[in-house]
């Protein structure tokens, strides 16, 4: 096999990447109350405790509401940005796109603290709406990137054919472009949903007294008794993320296949 040494290194590297995640289910099903070896025995009681926990259910409800709203808003804004940047030339395009992509590289602490200061001085009450505001902002660049790939691989002659056949701008968009970029839209929705579901810093500063799953987890980490339940919750979160990402990846590839472009791989 080609590149033996490199391949071995890459596999070791993958193991290092996955090590913490692989430990998660091991301890979520371990009956010992301390997270340490040797393992005690198999149990599902932590999962049962998790399901029976009221504040955790409230956190889950909040997280889902936030993630659904933020992913829809971010994807809508992303459609505008992606369509504008792939189809049109306009003045100050570089700086404008740079500004829209900026949350990708700006430390989250800066984004959340500055937003918090402004909201507090405006007298806005902190609740899940303010978290949605922040999450939409940080999901927008990701949505824009995913959707730009989708819009980029569009053949412009399809759109022109629709105009020639008497469609208006809007109906051409709805009947021709939208179905072709639909896989990209679904992929962007799922991606933003996953980002929002896992996001901690913005939720921590902007949620006020409303818990989300990550902030709930953070608040429970101080209590050793709660750790096994948190491991169970973590397992559920990770499994959910992986399923969502796999579906997102499936749609992304299908979108590329649909427009006949070559797969360049990867989300970023």
């Amino acid at each position: 096999m080609k590149g033996g040494g490199l391949r071995a290194y890459a596999i070791l590297y993958l193991l290092f990447l996955y090590a913490p995640i692989l430990l998660l289910p091991i301890f979520a099903f371990n009956s010992g109350t301390v997270i340490a070896f040797p393992l005690k025995g198999f149990t599902t009681q932590w999962f049962a405790q998790m399901v029976g926990n009221d504040s955790m259910r409230r956190a889950l409800g909040n997280s889902l509401t936030i993630a659904v709203c933020a992913s829809i808003f971010a994807t809508c804004l992303g459609i505008f940005a992606a369509r504008a940047s792939t189809r049109f030339e306009f003045p100050a395009k570089g700086p404008i796109m740079g500004l829209i992509m900026l949350p990708l590289v700006l430390p989250e602490i800066i984004v959340s603290i500055s937003l918090l200061v402004v909201l507090l001085s405006l007298g806005v009450k902190l609740n899940i709406l303010t978290v949605i505001l922040g999450h939409t902002l940080i999901c927008m660049p990701y949505a824009t990137v995913i959707l730009s790939t989708a819009f980029n691989s569009l053949d412009r002659s399809l759109e022109e054919a629709a105009y020639d056949l008497g469609e208006t701008k809007w109906s051409a968009f709805r009947l021709v472009i939208l179905p072709l970029v639909m896989p990209g839209i679904i992929s962007s929705l799922l991606m933003s949903f996953t980002i929002s579901l896992d996001e901690f810093i913005i939720a921590f500063f902007l949620a006020g007294n409303e818990p989300t799953l990550p902030t709930y987890i953070f608040s429970q980490l101080r209590f050793p008794k709660q750790i096994p339940t948190i491991m169970a919750l973590g397992t559920v979160l990770v499994v959910m993320s992986i399923i969502l990402l796999t579906i997102a990846e499936y749609f992304r590839r299908r979108g590329i296949a649909k427009t006949g472009a070559k797969d360049t791989g990867g989300f970023l």
């Binding site: 990447l17 996955y18 913490p20 995640i21 430990l23 998660l24 996953t194 980002i195 579901l197 896992d198 901690f200 990550p214 987890i217 953070f218 980490l221 948190i230 973590g234 979160l237 990770v238 993320s241 992986i242 990402l245 990867g266 989300f267 970023l268």
Partner: peptide, 14 residues
């Protein structure tokens, strides 16, 4: 990319 998309908080805690 999968590990990157799973909860940052949980990974740090782990």
């Amino acid at each position: 990319t999968i590990p990157f998309w799973t909860s940052y908080l949980i990974r740090v805690f782990l």
